[in-house]
Amino acid sequence: MSGRDVVLARIRRALADVPRGEGPSDPPVPRDYLRVHGSRTAGQNVDLLAENLAEYRAIVHRCGPGGLPVLIARLLAERGARSVVVPAGLEPGWLAGAEVTRVPDVPSATARELDAVDSVVTGCALAIAETGTIVLDAGPDQGRRRITLVPDHHICVVRVPGQVVSSVPEALPRLSPDRPLTWISGPSATSDIELDRVEGVHGPRTLEVILLAAG
């Protein structure tokens, strides 16, 4: 018997108490928990997102479409970034003001090459206000997962209020399990020393989130 047959046979014997007619989705699951905690306007949702991101030490900026290239250029210059990874589908105008070397997100790039790049600029799939989370789904303006992982500085643009949902239950139906997802809530952190939170371990140690208002 294969390992598979052994395990499945053991499970069936173990579940002798389950009535024969009961189907896999028959045992009831009460879903009377809230879809959203509290009631907020779209604007209040964006404020809450900003507040929660900041609490976990992300740096939050706000701007309109006209101000975005200038803001991104300033953030990169302030950090002294000379090179930036650029996802293939990032709006070209976003980096128009930045005097940096643009490193394309290509499959042949090695992790070591990415390690030598200063920053990365991406969009996102959505953001969750209640938890202060941005979600990347490897879409064209976000690129492969590793480009937002290896460089030490991540600038992420969230279109508000369009890309902001209230809660985790509102987020999941808008995300596809078929795409690789990265949920990011603040920069890399650890609680491993005396259960006290410290920011900055292996992921980008600086996370800047730009809340881009519609024009």
């Binding site: 499959p107 492969r144 997962r145 590793r146 690789p180 809530s185 890399s188």
Partner: peptide, 25 residues
Amino acid sequence: LPRSSTAERMNPYTTTWTGTTDGDG
């Protein structure tokens, strides 16, 4: 899970993946 374990609204990183993705991972 995050609120029970590290007492955070959400942990810094969550990764989900389904099988393999061409050119990513």
